[in-house]
Design a protein around this nucleic acid. Structure first.
Lengths: 148, 148
DNA sequence: TTTAGTTGTAACCAATATGGTTATAACATA
DNA sequence: TATGTTATAACCATATTGGTTACAACTAAA
């Protein structure tokens, strides 16, 4: 199966690092931590910026949080980073035969179940804020952690 | 975003049709209802067969349910049809830098959240049986419906 | 003003998954 | 044996993804 793009985990990584770092984070710095190409980072920071989650300063460089870690949920990150396909997790097969007793009726019913499953998925992501996630770091980082 | 393969919706369509049809369903018949190529159908019935959900008779032809519609959940279908990638919905980015304060710690925490979201998703799919889905047809089909 | 470092994009590329198609072997029954 | 079916291999076109190079635009400091 084709999995959900690693853009999501990278985006959470970026936001966590930006939240914890006192100074603005440059793309190259982020790329070093995530361990990927700076352009990948810029593509994702661009999406996060467009979603209003971060500020990125062109020219001088550096990204900073635009929203409090209390108000950023994993679902917001997920949506910010997906962008396409109407945000639908499932793909329904095209044009089932309407003359068939099932084909004509299954679509609405199954679609409703798919939507319900996606909603359960999204509700769980929505229940976790960036702050809550970062709390988990504290035991490891001690005083180093600096979340506004 | 890359969506979940339509194999899932096709598989549910197939199982519904097999459950409702008194006689064994041939691949060509199923292909006509789903509106796709018979080979696509055979690929999917092969997966459903391997998962123990249906019987398919080579040579003579025709698929029948091997398990009661009460005991087939959408999650079973989902898993039967995905097969690959360890059943993991999310893809975590590779090798975050362990020297970074976040990179070294984020993985386990975020992975746990991803797993929780996937579990919520799967729990919802597990709560719906094929029978329950087929109940929804009744108003439309009336006496035509024939579920064992 | 010039320079250096950065962000923002465009343009590719390789790898992979997907849905589709054709062809052929294996199979079971009349 | 003949017929219709399933099983499977071998392709193909398309799309997404992660990666890369290249270059324009931008900002601040020298």
């Amino acid at each position: 199966m084709k999995q959900i793009s690693s853009r999501f985990s990278i985006a959470v990584h970026i936001l966590s690092l930006v939240a914890v770092t006192p100074d603005p984070c440059t793309g190259d710095y982020l790329a070093g931590s995530v361990n990927t190409n700076p352009v990948i980072i810029r593509r994702i920071t661009g999406m996060l910026k467009k979603a209003g989650l971060i500020d990125v300063r062109p020219g001088v460089g550096g990204a900073t949080l635009r929203v409090s870690p209390d108000d950023i949920t994993l679902l917001m990150v997920f949506k910010a980073v997906q962008a396409a396909s109407e945000g639908e997790l499932f793909h329904f097969h095209d044009n089932p035969n309407p003359d068939c007793p099932i084909g004509g009726n299954i679509e609405a019913l199954l679609r409703a179940e798919m939507r319900a499953a996606q909603e359960a998925f999204e509700a769980r992501l929505a229940s976790v804020t960036l702050r809550k996630l970062l709390e988990g770091f504290k035991p490891h980082l001690g005083a180093e952690l600096r979340v506004p």
